[in-house]
Computed example of a mutant assay.
Amino acid sequence: MSIELLYFAWVRERVGLDREEVDVPDGIEDVAALVGWLAARGGGWRQALGDLSRLRYAADEAFVGADHPLAGVRELAIFPPVTGG
């Protein structure tokens, strides 16, 4: 399964990309597992994605939790919490 990842704000800055397409390995079935796999790449991915509690997600433009299944997801956005002002 292939998923397009979109990175926003400081997540994008630390990863060094605004988007990438990844082939999800077998056994990665939800957002948390995917983010953990990405963080294991090290470097900017570990810095940006190492703490799930600091991140928010949108699967195909709908907000989801870290336990959301990846089956059928084509696009996953990863971003920090948004604050108003």
Rank of each mutant, 00 (worst) to 15 (best):
residue 29 E to A: 14
residue 43 G to L: 02
residue 72 G to T: 12
residue 73 V to S: 05
residue 31 V to M: 01
residue 54 R to M: 11
residue 45 W to P: 02
residue 46 R to P: 03
residue 40 A to G: 14
residue 27 G to Y: 04
residue 7 Y to N: 05
residue 27 G to E: 04
residue 11 V to E: 04
residue 22 V to G: 08
residue 9 A to R: 13
residue 15 V to R: 02
residue 44 G to I: 02
residue 39 A to Y: 01
residue 6 L to M: 13
residue 34 L to C: 00
residue 27 G to S: 07
residue 69 P to T: 10
residue 36 G to T: 04
residue 68 H to S: 13
residue 76 L to C: 10
residue 48 A to H: 03
residue 83 T to S: 15
residue 68 H to E: 14
residue 54 R to D: 09
residue 3 I to R: 08
residue 12 R to N: 03
residue 61 E to G: 06
residue 78 I to R: 00
residue 32 A to N: 03
residue 28 I to W: 08
residue 41 R to H: 00
residue 42 G to H: 08
residue 76 L to Y: 09
residue 55 L to C: 09
residue 20 E to P: 04
residue 14 R to E: 13
residue 83 T to N: 12
residue 64 V to Y: 10
residue 38 L to Y: 02
residue 12 R to A: 10
residue 40 A to W: 02
residue 31 V to C: 00
residue 63 F to P: 14
residue 51 D to M: 07
residue 47 Q to C: 10
residue 18 D to R: 12
residue 85 G to Q: 08
residue 84 G to Y: 09
residue 4 E to W: 10
residue 56 R to Y: 10
residue 14 R to I: 02
residue 80 P to N: 11
residue 53 S to N: 13
residue 56 R to W: 08
residue 11 V to W: 00
residue 16 G to Q: 00
residue 8 F to I: 00
residue 44 G to A: 06
residue 18 D to V: 03
residue 33 A to P: 02
residue 35 V to E: 03
residue 57 Y to L: 12
residue 64 V to S: 11
residue 36 G to W: 00
residue 27 G to I: 07
residue 49 L to Q: 07
residue 55 L to W: 11
residue 44 G to Q: 05
residue 47 Q to V: 08
residue 46 R to N: 05
residue 32 A to P: 05
residue 37 W to D: 01
residue 42 G to P: 02
residue 21 E to A: 15
residue 44 G to C: 04
residue 63 F to W: 14
residue 36 G to V: 01
residue 28 I to S: 06
residue 23 D to L: 14
residue 75 E to D: 08
residue 84 G to D: 05
residue 2 S to G: 13
